[in-house]
Design a protein around this nucleic acid. Structure first.
Lengths: 297, 297
DNA sequence: TTATTTTCATAAGCTATTAATATCATTTTT
DNA sequence: AAAAATGATATTAATAGCTTATGAAAATAA
């Protein structure tokens, strides 16, 4: 025994016309239908909304109260029904891992903001395991992560490939080589990031390929730390291309970056989102936009 | 095919529980019923309100917009349904916080029931934060809370002031004092309730006034626990006047209550309700009745 | 791994609500 | 007084919404 929205429409129409026939017509129903529903409603409420004399229909005090409230409700219902979904609106929570975010964001954010003016990009920087969990839990909408990612709940698109360079200090024996191979690393232990960084895993697999040991004593907390350690001649390491400074004044360099011949020394970055998402379109559009902006370095 | 009120109830229930089965139960229907209706609604709207994976149900941005609007509508509908010629009829859902309810209710309920025979008082006991949320959501009609409460959606009336007494065990140095001051508390750490109790905040501000540390190790879950801890000589604490047993057989007491000289050692209790309520009259009448019954201890 | 449980979706049939048609009663108008 | 207007009532018809039964996919336990 609940009030329905139709009931509200009937009451409002009758309050306006003060005539059952006309009110019914305005509601696209027959007059007996409206009469009946109204009677039921009044029974449920326990008090009459209208006073019917044979000639005139008059609203009661109680009815007037009801009408006042019903009016604002109906207005809001109409508003709700016309509520439209524009997926290119609202917040888009994006996660990026720490050895990528600071180098990639300056390249892509201006374009994204320009291309999707109604989207608010909320970027958070976390290690991959955290990103994956938060994406699952819906705390993030999409993430940029190194491929491959095993999770079957996600869809992904490959975005770009980032080559690793060997970072050495100028006095290091390899510093003058124009290009190097994995074999050159045979007796060159590498400095690594701390546990949990996907780039640590990238570097470890390179070490496995080259048969190289690692400096177990040092575990840097960020790529910038790593770079400073190279400059301080603590050791050598891998740095991805995207993190290499552009304005390389060769004379003043404290760190030298040497490319690999081997194409396996790379990391692959993809954009991931939940298969089930209702905003697939958005991610595909964002992806397209990201792809072009990363290509034009 | 129009949105129905039942649809709104389903959406809100699902948004709350994030579980089809539980949401259905909350709406007193079976799960397929809710699934179907929701699917129809989403079709009508042209966009999904929820994102379903087998494990998690997550609300979409669009769904969140819908829910926000639906909530206020539903609240108004409920309000409309309870609109009656005689507002002093039906259910009145009242909330009271835990360090007040068990001591105040026996004093006020008999009078309320006698004075408003057609009102059914449904009392629930929750911490203040929960009360405030439920009052906002329309799950409660009015609440008794410690003043001040910042929320602008509420109207309130001051009901009574409750003085704190110092509760000590008989062998404590202060036990024989007829009256004490804040200065006496200088080196007397107090036992406190756990987080979330407004009385904990009351006590903390007294500590701040007196410059007293607190026993951080103990966090009692109820005022009765606190009282037992004092009796067990774990420490001393504050107890509000209303919670002091009346039949003080001075000889057999295991806890002694000492009044403060300082009038700042008090809590102020007010009755709060939503500004927009249609039952303002009822709350004012209930308030008047409460005020007189608490004055006559 | 395989079995079990959980959870949401789908299908078919039934029920209850709501609407339409036909009719009536009363009052107003002519 | 007859005709017209207006709202109420009864009966029948349409349909929206619910239940039961069942399915499929994923998570959890063995």
């Amino acid at each position: 025994m609940k009030i329905s929205i139709q009931d509200l429409r009937y009451v409002l129409a009758l309050a306006k016309t003060k005539h059952f026939g006309q009110a019914a017509k305005a509601c696209f129903v027959t007059q007996p239908s409206l009469s009946n529903q109204l009677k039921h409603l009044e029974t449920r409420l326990g008090a009459p909304l209208f006073e019917r004399s044979r000639k005139h229909v008059m609203i009661t005090d109680f009815g007037q109260q009801f009408v006042t409230k019903a009016k604002t409700i109906l207005q809001q219902i109409d508003d709700l029904e016309s509520l439209q979904d524009d997926p290119f609106t609202g917040n888009l929570k994006m996660g990026i891992f720490p050895t990528l975010a600071p180098y990639l964001l300056p390249k892509i954010m201006p374009k994204l903001i320009q291309k999707f003016p109604a989207l608010r990009f909320i970027v958070s920087e976390e290690k991959t395991a955290t990103l994956v969990q938060k994406l699952k839990d819906g705390e993030l909408d999409c993430i940029l992560a190194a491929e491959p990612l095993s999770d079957t709940q996600f869809t992904h698109q490959h975005m770009f490939t980032d080559s690793f360079f060997l970072a050495v200090y100028p006095s290091h024996p390899l510093a003058s080589a124009p290009q190097i191979t994995l074999q050159d690393l045979h007796h060159e232990p590498l400095l690594l990031l701390e546990e949990g960084h996907c780039m640590r895993d990238n570097a470890l697999s390179v070490c496995a390929l080259a048969g190289t040991p690692v400096h177990e004593d040092y575990r840097a907390t960020s790529m910038e730390t790593l770079r400073y350690m190279v400059a301080a001649k603590v050791g050598i390491t891998l740095i991805p291309e995207i993190a290499i400074p552009r304005d390389t004044q060769t004379s003043a360099q404290s760190v030298i970056y040497i490319p690999f011949k081997d194409h396996r020394v790379q990391r692959h970055i993809g954009l991931y989102w939940r298969k089930q998402t209702s905003r697939k379109m958005v991610f595909e559009a964002v992806f397209a936009s990201l792809k072009t902006s990363t290509l034009t370095k």
